[in-house]
Design a protein around this nucleic acid. Structure first.
Lengths: 336, 336
DNA sequence: GTCTACTTTGGAAGCGCTTCCAATCCAGCC
DNA sequence: GGCTGGATTGGAAGCGCTTCCAAAGTAGAC
């Protein structure tokens, strides 16, 4: 197995430069290309990444930063799916992926990434309304794509779903099945998804002319906050509860059950995300499906477009969501 | 912000070589070290990774390979936790992590990793009894640590939990609460965890002098196989079901419930993993807790030991497990 | 003051690759 | 046959760093 390009050059009887051209698609005569190519395949040669990167400034490695509280990080399958989407798309373009989870301070992570000089670009989750890490990346010269986005990032490239629209659709659905006191257990404040889902909920309620008085309670995307939120909402006579995500709905479900209320007859319940377990719940949960893997893949595409055309306009992609209606809002009974 | 070591050298009035020594801990006079160090801090300098790696052969980047079927990959929080454990330990030693999920064939992944020449070492999940990717890595000169292990890897370094022992302990617990027809819904065949848990179950049953006739059924670590397995076992009069993991137990639970049987009065139920949801189940699930994060961290430690002492003996670490007893095997009633 | 034995420092080579530039080749043309 | 110009090719520089080696500095012993 040939180890360096010089060896390859010797084996195929051409210069080092020519081998490099064959590998990187430079202009080489058909005859030569074929000859070198066959040696290339035969020896299963791959150029040394460090050397290539040093010489060319491109490495074929992108950074992925998911600076998330560890309790959330893989609790929620969201992140795993996102990573799978990215990983798949990266593999398609033969690129590698360096990963940072939130084990250092954001500043340290930022410094490391910016100064290592090996990355062609970065994909970073931007779920919080303000995030110095995201700011730093955007301010740098490193091509950066956000997953999620903040309204303020006028010139950032990002991939996201339209949370406002989706939450509006869900709320409208609940109103459509005759509910008048639709409550919302929100996601974490200061996060894009949390705020935007509130906005969508509010918009739909307003449009229907329904009052929100006390029907909007704070949650944090986790199960316990769903339980707490449901207690509050049921006390205030909610006949439908729209949770900011499925995990929250899990907590709400327990409370509704424990009060002996029927779903959906007494209280309709809805989530957001369509995680695996949503369809296995009892009753199966009405929720919003978002193509998380697609978001990951799309982020990679955006990034490579950006790398290829650094001065081009920012790429923005809003992926569609789907309202998935199950028995927690319509139809079939449930055990008390 | 200084970009190259030459610039740094100029700024601190020493040679490039001396700056390098300060960064890498070579022998430098205290006076000089302090002077350079202060410039280093001031400029927030980090050496270019590609250059450093090319010159020294060390990069401070390790590869992590989790070549798992995408349906399993992040369905099961195991992988996320493992990654978090590794990521944290790597951050502690200021090392980076390149990640490969199973998006290419194993051969392609192997070739990429072996030939990129940037990695100081590799951590790879070895859950299958035979795996060409693991074989290839072990055969290479790249320091490699397995998470999980195969009996045959005499000279491999690995981190694992003692599945046999844990499964034995669980089975013994079920026997201890008076069950005589203890069934086991196994994990996937040809996986270490699957086979070893079967071995532990079998060992405990044999020791207690209990017959296994028909009480051992095949599963695949997923919820549906738990349902199928429970159907079979209940038909055969099982009074306890030990599932190869918690996800499997989820499926079994549904079936037991649907037959109107009480847990644990009629059938005791147990899992393995102690995933988040296990304690939220109804009734809460008796299971085995394994410190997955610890496994990840320990794998990193092993790897760095190995890198530091390439010819040393293989490192093997078996992490302890804990039997977590909840209401699915003892105590409190349950809704029918 | 001279000599010896370290310690500290700078110079320079070289890691494996890409890419600029100039040399070479080969048609096709006059 | 000699030219011209485009396509191919090889030579060489250089990416930013580490590290070998030799030079310079320092201190202690004589």
């Amino acid at each position: 197995m040939a180890r360096t390009i010089d060896e390859l050059a010797r084996l195929s009887g051409v210069s080092r430069a020519t081998v490099s051209r064959v590998i990187n698609g430079g202009s080489v005569s058909e005859r030569t290309r074929r000859r070198v190519q066959s040696v290339l395949v035969e020896t299963n040669f791959r150029p040394n990444l460090a050397a290539r990167s040093l010489a060319s400034g491109r490495s074929g490695v992108v950074g992925v930063v998911m600076h998330i509280d560890s309790h959330l990080l893989f609790q929620d399958p969201y992140f795993g799916q996102l990573m799978q989407g990215m990983s798949g798309a990266l593999a398609d373009v033969a690129a590698g992926m360096m990963l940072w989870l939130g084990n250092r301070t954001k500043q340290e992570t930022l410094d490391t990434i910016l100064s290592m000089g090996l990355l062609d670009g970065v994909i970073v989750t931007a779920h919080n309304l303000d995030d110095p890490l995201v700011d730093g990346l955007l301010a740098s010269s490193l091509p950066t794509v956000l997953v999620g986005h903040r309204k303020a990032d006028r010139s950032a490239s990002y991939v996201d779903v339209d949370n406002v629209h989706a939450a509006d659709a869900m709320t409208t659905h609940l109103i459509g099945i005759g509910r008048r006191r639709v409550g919302h257990i929100s996601g974490m404040r200061r996060t894009v998804a949390g705020e935007d889902r509130i906005a969508g909920y509010t918009r739909a309620m307003n449009r229907a002319g329904l009052p929100i008085d006390g029907l909007l309670v704070d949650g944090d995307f986790n199960t316990p906050s769903g339980a707490a939120g449901a207690e509050a909402l049921l006390d205030r006579g909610a006949d439908a509860i729209f949770c900011a995500n499925d995990s929250t709905a899990l907590g709400a479900l327990e409370v509704i059950r424990s009060r002996g209320l029927r779903i959906p007859e007494d209280v309709a319940l809805a989530g957001f995300d369509d995680l695996e377990f949503a369809s296995h719940m009892d009753p199966p949960l009405t929720t919003i499906r978002q193509g998380v893997r697609d978001q990951g893949a799309e982020a990679v595409n955006c990034l490579f477009q950006l790398i290829g055309d650094r001065d081009g306009a920012p790429r923005r992609v809003l992926l569609p969501t789907e309202l998935v209606i199950r028995q927690s809002t319509v139809g079939g009974g449930t055990r008390a």
